[in-house]
């Protein structure tokens, strides 16, 4: 063997760490309403006239405190962007291929990423109307919305 690989030992390892993430007061209210009431909440910055979904405590644009500026947004909305995931990773929410879309809910100004289930043959497109399908099981994150589907 050549000098470079005469002593070359590779050790197998793995990083895994059970962890608890605190969602924060604002995030907790959003996630609990989503899980228990199937309500989707946003926060509206009165100065920027922008409704953020998911919500946050402070407006990133003008730094206003948004804690008490809750608004209900719709569970339907439109596609503002999309991709079709074709590669497989263990953290993915479903078996590829699947559509990952940016969805702007009615009453919200900021789209967020979620799974879009298209019926056989249907293709996503910008501007298409979609609606949330809520999870039958209680979920403690955004997957309390199981996925979105095209409105008929």
């Amino acid at each position: 063997m050549s000098g470079e690989t005469e002593y070359a030992y590779v050790v197998e390892g793995k990083m895994a760490l059970p962890y608890q993430y605190f969602a924060g007061a604002v995030g907790s209210k959003f996630l609990i309403a989503l899980r228990d009431e199937k309500r989707i909440l946003g926060v509206r910055c009165p100065k920027c006239e922008t409704t953020f979904v998911p919500p946050r405590q402070t407006c990133e644009r003008c730094f206003s405190d948004l804690t008490s500026h809750w608004v209900d947004v719709g569970s339907s909305g439109e596609i503002t962007g999309y991709t079709v995931i074709n590669y497989k990773e263990p953290y993915q929410p479903k078996e590829p291929p699947y559509v990952l879309a940016l969805i702007k809910l009615d009453g919200a100004d900021t789209p967020f990423a979620h799974i879009l289930n298209c019926a056989d043959g249907a293709q996503p497109a910008i501007g298409m109307r979609v609606r949330a399908v809520f999870s039958k099981e209680p979920k403690d994150n955004i997957l309390a919305i199981s996925h979105f589907e095209l409105e008929p």
């Binding site: 998911p54 991709t83 995931i85 993915q92 929410p93 990952l100 967020f112 994150n141």
Partner: peptide, 25 residues
């Protein structure tokens, strides 16, 4: 994938390839 938050973006499987694909589209 670990660059994303655990509440809203990791659960839907985001990683840099998916983010770049949304940007490219």
């Amino acid at each position: 994938h670990l660059a994303f938050d655990p509440f809203y973006t990791r659960p839907v499987g985001l990683d840099y390839v998916a983010a770049a694909a949304l940007q490219a589209q």
